[in-house]
Design a protein around this nucleic acid. Structure first.
Lengths: 218, 218
DNA sequence: CAGTGTGAAGCGCTTCACAGCT
DNA sequence: AGCTGTGAAGCGCTTCACACTG
């Protein structure tokens, strides 16, 4: 019910991986897994799987392993995806449309209950089947539908003001997909995924491999 | 030209942040910045900015700071975005369309030279203005256009086989957006961005806040 | 035995604090 | 005086190794 509050973020991210792996093997009818097998699926280390799980309780059976369905249920509870979480998407551009059209969110317990944009030419129209609402209606939707999560899919220049609006509307956690750092006052949580940054990390690895060979380039 | 090969990944990701910050202040006409100011933009620590940069050389002027244009150019060189990198996108669904339509990639030196899909009803048609090619043409395009990077935007079940095809085609680094772990043999690099996992981390934080209050829920 | 749970050791990133330039 | 560059200390995550259990 409550666990040491110092859970490493890396651990939580791995729990999500373990959960995905468990859903897969459960679909295949497997009933028991060892930490070694879980580790293989997420290319991690078996000792780490056990240590990660041990933060939250003793879920395994010594000499046997873990019961798939049981551990999956525990992980869902720990990750907080055992209850449906309502989410809104801000930004009805290409990325927003992609998010709305992606079935994986609903499948994992995230129900998208609103798509917002501040572009008058989009408001009222449908994008990926979802009616676009104006930002003026954000507060009402968040309150009425008990929205906890928002996904920000707007251009960098608008990102911070959208985050501010979300905080004002009462959203408690935000996933920012704009390529700029945004901040929100506690207890609101903001996590950012910056795909351009990821590409730059890839480019760094390429450059690292190039440089020793320096001198060509047609 | 060459640097200690043990650069922490976290450092590289921050370099990308610093570069973004430098581009912003350069646009505003600022010519000199201190490590403290760079740190503020990426909510990091000034000592860390200096340590990160010091892996690659001495770019600062003691008592003064860093010259914005100069440091931006150095970071572009270090990150390998001083030369144009050709990329392909696999998957012409909503997400692929969003990637093709996103101007931020070109702006940062990533040129998308091909959009691929294996769905016959899509091949030959245009998505976000780009003609969709069949997977059979992947090898030819990669070779002819010297493609180094691929972005995988296909469903989870297809992700690993797409990665395999990319490796066979000669792509050197892959950004996987499918919500499943994929692997490729060295020296090919795969990085994954899993938005459903990020949402689950957010949900964990929400659950963490909920649990102490347990007992309600209408 | 096979496989979990876990204290302790190992290791790498972060932060500090200050010497060294300009 | 101001700010960089950096050894050294601090700290937290990862890995090891083994006691323990069914």
């Amino acid at each position: 019910m409550s666990w040491p509050s110092n859970i490493p973020e890396a651990t939580v991210r791995r729990l999500s991986k373990y959960l995905a792996a468990l859903r897969r093997v459960e679909r295949d009818g497997v009933e028991t897994v060892s930490s070694v097998e879980i580790a293989k699926q997420g290319n991690a280390n078996a000792a780490q799987v056990r240590k990660d799980l041990s933060y939250f309780g003793d879920f395994g059976y010594r000499g046997v392993g873990y019961k798939v369905g049981e551990l999956r249920a525990e992980l869902m509870r720990i990750l907080g995806v055992d209850v449906e979480r309502r989410a809104v998407v801000i930004g009805a551009g290409n990325l927003g449309a992609a998010l709305i059209g992606y079935p994986g969110f609903e499948r994992r317990g995230f129900r998208i209950v609103g798509l917002f944009d501040n572009n008058q030419s989009k408001i009222g129209h449908r994008v990926s089947g979802e009616r676009v609402l104006g930002m003026a209606q954000l507060g009402a939707v968040v309150a009425k539908q008990d929205v906890e999560i928002a996904v920000v899919a707007v251009p960098a220049v608008a990102a911070q003001q959208v985050v501010d609006a979300l905080v004002a509307a009462g959203v408690r956690s935000i996933l920012n997909l704009a390529p700029i750092e945004t901040t929100a006052p506690p207890p609101v949580i903001v996590r950012s995924v910056d795909m351009t940054a990821e590409l730059e990390v890839l480019a760094f690895c390429l450059a690292d491999a190039d440089k020793p060979l320096e001198g060509e380039r047609s």
